[in-house]
């Protein structure tokens, strides 16, 4: 049956912005799909949700979701989201951004937001390079990978994002690939219900740029690599979850509870105001 109909999730997307600009086989569409699935299953009030994104291919997400959203400057997605969350703590703030934005130029914002436990939710699509600008070497490019700025193989050790987030103090840390759509959606649902700094890393295929240099020219070949290499381990040690060609450890890594910054912040202000009245 082939017919012209509208998708049931299209109410969460801005119709005038569709179809999106992402390449065929790009994982960003799957991240957006899983995100709106999670919103649909949780029956989230779209007036109480803010989507913030930074620069990069996945930064377009803020323009595609039919919520209050903001596309910030490079690396400042968390800085902007911190302001939103502190000004109106009743809003749900979700950051959808890439590895270059969150960990290269925005690395400092990330570790301090995690340390202070600000109640923003971070979804990071990790495609191993700077896809939008032509495939330069990024902070997550695996060793010996070829990119436009490392044509003889990468010699820089990459970040282990889940270890970084767990060490900096995030209360919920998980990693999935774009092939684990069900578990990714479940994880996003769990994250949205928590209070505090949560982080999900999504390993995303970039066939047009990263794959082209690394003998995986189509999205299907990259997904087959994820299928072959990924190992689901629940609550394993994030320090040992390095991404290599042979093994990608996926699963939940940290799930704890801590008082969030905005709660302590508003309590403290109330205390001081009370004292000054007396």
């Amino acid at each position: 049956m082939v017919e012209q109909v509208t998708h049931p999730l299209s109410k969460y997307l801005r119709a005038d912005m569709m179809p999106h600009i992402w390449c065929p086989g790009c994982g960003n569409g799957i991240v957006l799909n899983c995100f709106v699935h999670a919103l649909d299953e949780l029956k989230t009030d779209l007036d109480k949700l803010v989507v913030v994104s930074g620069i990069g291919c996945i930064g377009r997400t803020a323009g595609y979701t039919n919520t209050d959203s903001f596309h910030t400057t490079h690396g400042r997605a968390i800085a902007f989201a911190t302001g939103v969350k502190l000004a109106s703590p009743e809003l749900e703030v979700v950051i959808v951004s890439g590895d270059g934005d969150l960990f290269a130029i925005g690395g400092n914002h990330f570790i301090h937001a995690a340390r202070r436990n600000i109640g923003v939710k971070v979804i990071c699509a990790n495609n191993f390079n700077y896809g939008m600008t032509g495939g330069q070497l990024g902070p997550t490019t695996p060793l010996e990978s070829l990119t436009t700025t490392s044509p003889y193989g990468n010699i820089e050790h990459p970040f282990n994002l889940v270890h970084l987030a767990a060490a900096a103090g995030a209360i919920y840390v998980a990693r999935w690939t774009t092939l684990h759509v069900r578990r990714l959606t479940q994880s996003m649902k769990k994250m949205m219900q928590k209070e505090g700094f949560c982080f999900i890393e999504v390993i995303s295929p970039c066939p047009e740029i990263f794959g082209r240099y690394n003998k995986m020219r189509t999205g299907l070949e990259m997904m087959e690599w994820f299928k072959k290499a990924s190992v689901v381990e629940s609550f394993s040690d994030p320090a040992k979850a390095e991404i290599t060609k042979e093994k990608i450890v996926v699963g939940e890594f940290v799930d704890t509870q801590k008082l969030s910054y905005e709660k302590l912040f508003h309590e403290k202000i109330a205390q001081i105001n009370e004292r000054s009245i007396q």
Binding site: L9, S10, L13, M18, H20, G25, G29, I30, N33
Partner: peptide, 8 residues
């Protein structure tokens, strides 16, 4: 439905 990047 879940894996389609283009909502198609």
């Amino acid at each position: 439905t879940a894996v389609c990047p283009d909502f198609a």
